[in-house]
């Protein structure tokens, strides 16, 4: 399946679009484009962080109590898994730069595997919350937090929790699809020292998903 070192024999401009002068220019443009996209992602998640900050500072005690209902152990395990997937992704970029086809495929596969495990653990956490009724504001049904004016403030915490982790999970799914696409292409032997842009840009995206989680984990699980 793995086309060893095919990059050395491929036609020089196979992946260079006609409107770029040099491969270097195309690489720089793609990378800048990806960073601009990451900027939009930072702002996209940024909105949720604003909502988080507003409700946490208005009701610190609610957040403190509600965070106890999350499973810190599972959150920490998921953090380690995502960090590991970031390592394998960074390594995949290294492999593609060096033309190591086997290493590239292995690293990408490990990354996808870690992402799926992350989602599995997330699913376990979600199902616990579902069974205990620890859901978002309108569905929250557990009488153990401060209740004000006919609704439960803890529901607000879980609204934020589900919005943030849910959006993050959607990004994980998109990341799996993107890495899967890169994996397919690497099985075909598309990448080598002078063409690894998709590995690099998808890698950047994956690291950003990791970055978001680095902030989500302490802000949601470790209040206390």
């Amino acid at each position: 399946m793995i086309a060893e070192a095919s990059s050395a024999t491929q036609a020089p401009s196979r992946f260079r679009a006609h409107h770029f002068e040099t491969a270097e220019q195309q690489y720089a443009a793609s990378k800048l484009g990806m960073w601009l996209f990451l900027v939009t992602e930072v702002l996209f998640f940024g909105g949720l962080f604003v909502a988080y900050a507003v409700f946490r500072t208005l009701h610190p005690e609610v957040f403190m109590n509600s965070a106890q209902l999350l499973d810190t152990r599972l959150g920490a395990i998921n953090t380690v898994i995502l960090l590991f997937s970031s390592l394998t992704m960074a390594w995949a970029v290294r492999c593609s730069q060096l033309g190591q086809q086997r290493g590239l495929v292995i690293c990408l596969s490990l990354t996808i595997f870690a992402a799926i495990v992350f989602l599995g653990i997330k699913g376990v956490e979600y199902s616990h919350k579902w069974h205990e009724g620890h859901l978002w504001a309108s569905q929250y049904s557990s009488g153990d937090a401060a209740s004000v004016g006919g609704f439960d403030r803890a529901g607000t915490f879980f609204s934020i929790y589900f919005a943030m982790t849910g959006l993050h999970a959607i990004h994980i799914v998109a990341g799996i699809a993107a890495i899967g696409w890169v994996l397919m292409r690497s099985l075909r032997g598309d990448f080598g020292p002078n063409y690894f842009t998709p590995v690099d840009t998808v890698g950047l995206y994956w690291h950003l998903v990791d970055l978001v989680w680095i902030f989500l984990f302490p802000l949601l699980y470790l209040i206390g």
Partner: peptide, 14 residues
């Protein structure tokens, strides 16, 4: 990354 078989236009340095 230097791959001398390729012209300078086709090389990427990173």
């Amino acid at each position: 990354m230097n791959n001398s078989s390729l012209p300078a236009d086709e090389q990427i340095h990173s």
